[in-house]
Simulated assay, not measured.
Amino acid sequence: MNAFRVAALLVAPLFVSGCYSTPKEKTEYEKQIDAVPMPATEAERVEQCRNFQQSADHQRIVDLLQYAQRSKLGDSDYEFTESRALLRRLRAMKCPGYGWFS
């Protein structure tokens, strides 16, 4: 019984520290995307989906070029923050092809 209590006392701080990690600071691009109001009507949603999908497609090309360039130089520190922000927004608006189950 004492071994279980000791193990629980050792594991609990690790579990709690993992659950309460500080959130990562948003980039300026993520803040700009979050500033765009969510669509109120279906027509606005379709239009915003189309616009964000075009931006996401363009960003994928930029990411691919950046990744290829950085891999040639040996620097692999590219984070794809713009692409992730666009994908989060597309999922939040439930755009076709970008949702979890679409």
Rank of each mutant, 00 (worst) to 15 (best):
N2H: 10
F4L: 13
R5Y: 08
V6S: 12
V6H: 09
A7V: 10
A8L: 14
A8T: 09
L9T: 06
L10T: 08
V11Y: 05
V11P: 02
A12L: 15
A12D: 01
A12I: 10
A12R: 03
P13D: 08
P13G: 09
L14W: 07
F15M: 10
F15N: 01
F15R: 05
F15P: 00
F15Y: 09
G18K: 03
G18C: 06
C19I: 08
C19E: 03
Y20E: 00
P23T: 11
P23Q: 10
K24V: 15
K24S: 13
E25L: 11
E25G: 01
K26F: 08
K26S: 11
K26M: 09
Y29R: 02
K31Q: 15
Q32A: 15
Q32D: 14
Q32E: 15
I33G: 05
I33R: 05
I33P: 04
D34C: 06
A35C: 07
A35D: 10
P37I: 06
M38E: 09
M38I: 08
P39Q: 06
P39L: 06
P39D: 05
P39C: 07
T41D: 06
T41E: 06
T41Q: 05
A43E: 12
E44T: 09
E44N: 10
E44W: 11
R45S: 08
V46C: 04
E47C: 05
E47A: 15
Q48K: 15
Q48Y: 11
Q48L: 15
Q48N: 11
C49L: 05
C49G: 07
R50Q: 14
R50T: 13
R50W: 02
F52M: 11
Q53H: 06
Q53K: 12
Q54K: 13
Q54E: 12
Q54A: 15
S55V: 02
H58W: 03
Q59W: 03
Q59S: 06
R60A: 05
R60V: 02
R60G: 00
I61C: 00
V62E: 03
V62F: 01
Q66D: 04
Q66E: 05
Y67F: 09
Y67A: 03
Q69V: 04
Q69I: 03
Q69A: 08
Q69F: 04
Q69T: 06
R70V: 01
L73A: 08
G74M: 02
G74W: 01
G74R: 00
G74H: 01
G74N: 03
D75A: 06
D75N: 07
D75C: 00
D75Q: 07
S76P: 01
S76R: 13
S76G: 12
S76A: 11
D77R: 07
D77F: 00
Y78W: 04
Y78N: 08
Y78G: 04
E79H: 09
E79G: 02
F80E: 09
F80M: 12
T81E: 10
E82Q: 13
E82C: 02
S83M: 10
S83W: 09
S83L: 15
R84D: 14
R84T: 14
R84W: 08
A85V: 01
A85Y: 00
L87D: 12
L87C: 04
R89W: 08
L90E: 07
L90W: 00
L90Q: 03
R91D: 14
R91G: 14
R91L: 01
R91C: 05
A92M: 09
K94G: 11
P96D: 04
G97L: 02
Y98S: 01
Y98P: 00
Y98R: 00
F101M: 13
F101D: 14
S102A: 13
